[in-house]
Design a protein around this nucleic acid. Structure first.
Lengths: 209, 209
DNA sequence: TAGATTGTTAATCGATTAACAATC
DNA sequence: TAGATTGTTAATCGATTAACAATC
């Protein structure tokens, strides 16, 4: 199944952005776009866009450009969002609820399969129509439901231990929201959302702009 | 005030991570660290750490390494977190509340000066001890309170317009949580947290690992 | 002093940009 | 056919790594 050519992180990170801009063109009922037009919209070079896409195949046509629907579908296939992913959320706090309620995440094929918490008062309640379950039932839950990704929206002190446990349960994709770095075997995949890191970079830029 | 040498984005993005790892060493009561030791902890090269730090000055000592407290303080100064920033949150939904309640953000000197919403039912309520105000009072609010950063945790459709307004009000730092790219004059600074982009990258890596 | 480790210069590696033949 | 625009190869630029003299 795997695409065997290794594509750089920088390219992968631009793909969702292409998707968003193509979506916007679709909303405006535009059917085709050239690398030059798209580059102007996105603040990139046309060269970079063609170079990026050429990592995965040939999606355009000389003299015409790119058919937007086709390119959109193609990038979705590259990202695997056409087949979808199952996500569980560990920690039903504000961040967990933000994810559970995010339209843009679900729109891209990430289904929230379950939400788990340790707090008795939250267990049994519903978030966006999904029942909050006892965190101790995760192992059981996984036996009957395929889970691709665990979003860790729990306090920092607990994150390393929970991540390790999730990995042992066979969940290889970890979406980490704590201000800590996870070290796991290399068949695990970790993506970090470090809010405090992000705002510190913003602060630096404000002072040095 | 400005540091006039331009430092690359890649270096800036690593600074908060250095801070986190130094913090962890502090928690373990360790007083000094060499670039080699730190590199092993962080999964970088010692060379890169020394190269990164040399963008801002000289913080170490031959034969000894780095004094952790001094390096920690120095990086805080570089990032401006020692002087602090004032942040307002626009949108008191789950994401807004997650920010308002984040310890790690406040710990790094980002003070939540106000929270604003359009929803009558939320206005007047309190989040982490901060009263939610009517979004229409922002302009007035800014006249009496210095605001460095506006966190935009509102629906995507409204984000571009609100960002433009905040910029016109004189807030140059925008922390954007919507799945959209903002284009503003270049004295504005935007930092994006695109959750859906992040999880798509994670999905790709799961399939191609 | 001898060993360790910095800050910096030079070498390498990777990513972006430019150029252009192929072709719709 | 003529003009436009792709995919790709080559050139440039920037970031990472290696090496080492300086020095604590």
């Amino acid at each position: 199944m795997g695409n065997r050519k290794i594509v750089s992180e920088a390219v992968i990170k631009r793909l969702p952005r292409y998707l968003r801009h193509l979506c916007e063109l679709q909303r405006n009922d535009i059917l085709r776009v050239s690398s030059k037009e798209l580059s102007q919209r996105m603040g990139l070079t046309a060269s970079q866009i063609r170079q990026d896409l050429s990592c995965f195949g040939e999606f355009g046509q000389q003299g015409y450009g790119y058919n937007i629907d086709f390119l959109f579908d193609s990038i979705n296939k590259i990202l695997g969002t056409d087949k979808g992913f199952n996500v569980i959320i560990i920690g039903a706090g504000n961040m967990g609820r933000a994810i559970a309620n995010s339209e843009s995440i679900q729109l891209r094929g990430f289904a929230i399969a379950g939400i788990f918490d340790i707090n008795e008062e939250l267990i049994g309640s519903e978030i966006n129509g999904i029942k909050v379950l006892d965190v101790n039932t995760i192992h059981e839950f996984i036996k009957t439901t395929k889970v691709d990704i665990a979003a860790l929206t729990i306090p920092r002190e607990q994150t390393k231990a929970v991540a390790k446990k999730m990995y042992e349960y066979g969940i290889k994709g970890l979406w980490n929201f704590s201000a800590t770095d996870l070290t796991l075997p290399k068949d695990a995949v970790v993506e970090n959302v470090h809010l405090s890191d992000s705002i510190m970079v913003l602060g630096y830029k404000i002072n040095n702009n």
